[in-house]
Computed example of a mutant assay.
Amino acid sequence: MVDHEWTPLQKEVISGLSAGCITTLVVHPLDLLKVRLQLSATSAQKVHYGPFAVIKEIIHSSANTGRSRSKVINELYRGLSINLFGNAIAWGVYFGLYGVMKDLIYKAVEKPGQSQFQGVSNDHKINSLIYLSAGASSGLMTAILTNPIWVIKTRIMSTSKGVQGAYTSIYNGVQQLLRKEGLRGLWKGLVPALFGVSQGALYFTVYDTLKQRKLRRKRESGQNIHLTNLETIEITSLGKMISVTLVYPFQLLKSNLQSFKANEQKFRLFPLVKLIIANDGFAGLYKGLSTNLLRAIPSTCITFCVYENLKHRL
């Protein structure tokens, strides 16, 4: 019996989908805290609003029901289904496009006469500029395709289920949004989302550049040419810390433009920036950064450990 041989593109997509699903399940509560902290940036009354205040609110709202413990868990995992769906799709699309774009850009720049599709086999020949270009172009396409998912996700995760006007499900959210705001509502926050793509591009540039350096050293010393989990975690943590911190304000602006409040108060990008700075100074643009790093670094480590190991074994 002959084993099925996966193509490089299939490996990228399967590994990306699996990694996205597993990561989302593990860190979803931190994602919910991050969203609620980001949305507090537009409220002058919530200048000192922190992670513990969010948890306190969830516990307080849960105490009004007879099943407080299960209610707390339900609230911490509110929006899990759309977060799971969105991250699985986004990572699958991103990894698939990233693998293709690296190869296409490499051939266009380095090997214009080469016509055979080699997938990710050219990685050891690729420089940082190609990684940056591939990451940026893949991120832009992924952001445009998945923006409607993130609008619904932000609104579901920003409110408790019992709050008046809250979306009770993905279907209910889509229905309400289309009825009240039309198709344009599905692409709210797209502009900062497109600028925020630079985070992924920067991350992949750092990650793949450091990864190829480590693999080159292993190859030269005759070692097994595969990253260990510890090496993946080391590279991932450094890349994520740098990239997230540099472009975090775009994430915060995107969340606020996608919120219920954005529709009620007709938020626009530049007036929104002014409002946040007026409430809390420039520090307001980094509201929830520590929680985001606490979520982003371990979640990306999980994602890339799953991704690298699965791709290696497929």
Rank of each mutant, 00 (worst) to 15 (best):
D3N: 07
E5K: 15
L9S: 12
I14V: 13
C21S: 08
T23A: 12
T24F: 04
H28I: 10
L30V: 01
A41H: 04
A41D: 08
Q45A: 15
S62M: 01
A63W: 14
S68H: 14
V72E: 08
V72H: 09
R78W: 02
G79E: 07
L80Y: 05
L84D: 06
G86E: 09
N87P: 10
I105M: 03
Y106L: 01
G113M: 02
G113Y: 04
F117W: 13
Q118V: 02
S121A: 14
N122M: 06
D123R: 05
K125W: 10
I126H: 01
N127L: 10
A134C: 09
G135K: 15
S138A: 15
M141L: 15
P148Q: 11
I149K: 12
M157K: 12
K161C: 06
K161M: 09
Q175S: 11
E181T: 06
R184M: 11
L186Y: 13
W187P: 00
G189N: 03
L190P: 01
P192V: 04
P192R: 00
A193K: 01
V197T: 10
Q199P: 06
G200N: 13
F204P: 00
Y207A: 07
L210D: 08
K211I: 02
Q212G: 03
R216D: 10
K218V: 13
Q223C: 12
I225P: 02
L227K: 00
E231H: 12
T232Q: 14
S237Q: 02
T245A: 10
T245E: 02
V247W: 15
Q251C: 06
L252F: 12
L272Y: 00
I276G: 01
F282N: 06
K287N: 06
K287V: 04
L289P: 02
R295K: 14
T300D: 11
C305Y: 01
V306M: 01
H312F: 13
H312E: 04
